[in-house]
Amino acid sequence: MVKTQPSIAEIWTWLDAVPDPEIPVVSVVDLGIVRGVAREGGKIVVTITPTYSGCPATSVISFEVERALREKGLEDVELRRQLSPAWTTDWIARKGRDKLEEYGIAPPSPAGGPERCPRCGERDLERISQFGSTPCKAQWRCKSCLEPFDYFKCI
């Protein structure tokens, strides 16, 4: 049987359908975790960078990426871990930022805190804690609608 090889762009599309295990509303591509897709001989090499060094989701992400590609019929897949340049929230795509906000998580902001409440849009906010339910999030509260919300830490 002759198989046609998928294009690199096609593989990126498949990877963009793999959800982040902790924040399933965004994909691993949206978060900038997938750093590269390349063909080396007959093998597809996917380069992945961890968000936080101790993030338990990292191994789940590798597992899900490999599974997604195998389900599409790719047999020879290698995952490579890349530490440098270190992951930064600047790599979260526009689409990812919008999806986070829609989901109720304020996207990272270089100002060091959320721009506005993801629920009501008001800007009178206070920090509850520098850390949150996952390594990538901090807890904030809106003083206008009084709702607490997650903020995606800017690193």
Partner: peptide, 20 residues
């Protein structure tokens, strides 16, 4: 609660660095 979470997150970062 917030400090408990912060301590656990700090511990997690340190253990992640240990693995490397």
């Amino acid at each position: 609660l917030e400090e408990d979470i912060a301590l656990a997150n700090t511990a997690l970062d340190l253990i992640g660095q240990t693995q490397m």
